[in-house]
Amino acid sequence: MEKASWKHRWMTLRKAVWGGILPILILGSIYSGAATPTESSIIASAYAIVVSLFVYKETSLKLWHKIFRETIGVTAMIMLIIASAMLFSLYLTQEQIPQQLATAMLSMPSLNVVLFFVLTAVLFLVLGTFLESSSIILITLPLLMPIMLSLDVNPIHFAVVMIVNMEIAQVTPPVGLNLFVISGITKEKLGTVFYGAVPFTIVMALCMIIIMIWPGLALWLPDTLFGKS
Rank of each mutant, 00 (worst) to 15 (best):
E2Y: 05
E2N: 08
A4G: 04
W10D: 01
T12V: 05
L13H: 00
L13E: 06
I21N: 08
L25E: 08
L25D: 09
I26P: 07
L27H: 12
S29V: 06
A35Y: 02
A35C: 05
P37Q: 06
P37M: 06
T38H: 05
S40I: 07
S40Q: 10
S40W: 03
S41H: 05
S41K: 04
A44M: 13
A44V: 03
A46N: 05
A46K: 06
V55Y: 04
T59V: 15
L63V: 09
H65Y: 13
R69T: 15
R69Y: 15
T71R: 13
V74A: 09
T75F: 10
M79A: 01
L80R: 00
L80C: 00
I82W: 01
A85F: 02
M86P: 06
M86F: 14
S89V: 07
L90A: 12
L90I: 14
Y91T: 14
L92M: 14
L92R: 10
E95L: 14
I97V: 12
P98V: 01
Q99A: 05
L101C: 06
T103P: 01
P109G: 13
S110W: 11
L111W: 12
L111D: 07
V113N: 11
L115R: 08
L115C: 14
V118E: 07
V118S: 03
L119D: 07
T120I: 11
L123I: 14
L123Q: 02
F124T: 07
L127C: 07
L131E: 14
E132T: 05
S133L: 08
S135H: 00
I136F: 03
I137A: 09
L143C: 05
L143T: 03
I147V: 14
I147A: 01
M148T: 01
L149I: 12
S150E: 03
S150W: 01
V161Q: 02
V161W: 02
M162C: 12
M162A: 14
I163K: 03
I163A: 15
I163M: 15
N165C: 15
M166N: 04
E167F: 15
E167A: 12
A169W: 08
T172I: 15
P173C: 09
N178G: 13
L179E: 08
V181C: 03
I182Q: 00
K187W: 06
T192V: 14
V193Q: 11
V193N: 12
F194Y: 13
A197I: 11
P199V: 00
F200M: 03
V203C: 09
C207Q: 04
I210T: 08
I211W: 06
W214M: 12
P215T: 10
L217T: 11
A218Q: 03
P222H: 15
F226K: 07
F226T: 00
F226G: 07
S229K: 00
